[in-house]
């Protein structure tokens, strides 16, 4: 059991780190939620009113606001830790400490990433409560708690997949030193092709078919659908399985990149 104790301590430590800065915590956890609610309501209310329509892409205004809020927060959960969770440490040499510890750097980083994802998932809980009380008695307020819990699991799975993709790009810092733009590009691509900005149903049929062969819809659209109770058990299990396959493929690529990159590592920095 001893080998399980250090990951638990890492989780606890990361939570302590998040809680260390009080004002940042409240702004991030509460302030941003309020901002997102106001933003999405005003934005989509204006768009629906301007177009004079009741439904867009199969979504009415309430559903659209709900989708948009969920998408923004799922994307936030997917992003986990900030850009540079590996590349910054390679760049400034702080990776040294992880290399000398008798634990896996990959496991350590994965755990910390998921802690941040989990914290961001708490914001989805706030949206869930918002639906339950504010939108009552619309169909959205009828979303069962089980969907929320399954959504959290789906969100953590998709975060892990995004973490794995991020690890590969972050490891490029062994060669390129600075990879911030590359990570921004990955985030933008995932948001665009994953369904954060607009639902994938807005895209042409052929594009939706092509996207099924990429990891992006499984990272964003899948957890959104679960949180919105728009799924069945087959869909859920199938998507979980596809995420696992993608994860495994990216893990193999990461191992290769990491192994080669370590040979380039100089441990110097600021």
């Amino acid at each position: 059991m001893k080998s399980l104790r250090w990951p638990m301590t890492v989780i606890s430590m990361e939570v302590r780190k998040i809680l260390a800065y009080r004002s940042d915590f409240w702004v991030n956890q509460v302030g941003l939620i309020i901002f997102q609610v106001i933003l999405s309501y005003s934005l989509w209310f204006a768009i629906f009113e301007f177009n004079g329509v009741e439904k867009m892409g199969g979504y009415d205004l309430t559903n659209f606001i709900h989708y948009y809020l969920t998408a923004v927060l799922v994307a936030k959960a997917m992003l986990g830790e900030d850009i540079g969770f590996l590349s910054r440490e390679i760049y400034d040499g702080t990776l040294n400490r992880f290399i000398v510890y008798p634990v896996s750097i990959f496991q350590y980083k994965h755990i910390t990433y998921l802690v941040y994802s989990l914290f961001n998932n708490c914001q989805l809980f706030a949206i869930f409560l918002f639906n339950y009380f504010y939108l009552h008695p619309t169909p959205l307020s009828e979303i069962p708690w089980s969907s929320y819990l399954l959504g959290v699991f789906a969100s953590l799975l998709s975060s892990s997949l995004f973490f794995m993709m991020g690890c590969i790009l972050e490891s490029i810092a062994f060669w390129a030193d600075y990879i911030w733009s590359l990570m921004v590009l990955l985030r933008m691509t995932t948001n665009f092709l994953g369904g954060t900005l607009i639902p994938l149903t807005f895209y042409p049929e052929w594009a939706q078919e092509v996207l099924k062969f990429t990891p992006f819809p499984y990272i964003v659209t899948f957890p959104i659908k679960v949180f919105m109770n728009d799924f069945d058990s087959i869909y859920y299990l199938k998507n979980c399985a596809i995420i696992c396959v993608w994860y495994f493929i990216f893990y193999l690529i990461f191992r290769l990149v990491w192994r080669k990159g370590q040979l380039k590592y100089t441990g110097v920095g600021i």
Partner: peptide
């Protein structure tokens, strides 16, 4: 970002 004792607890487990 944390007091040293917090880091030590993690090192104890590691």
């Amino acid at each position: 970002d944390l007091p040293a004792l917090d880091s030590f607890l993690l090192l104890q487990e590691i």
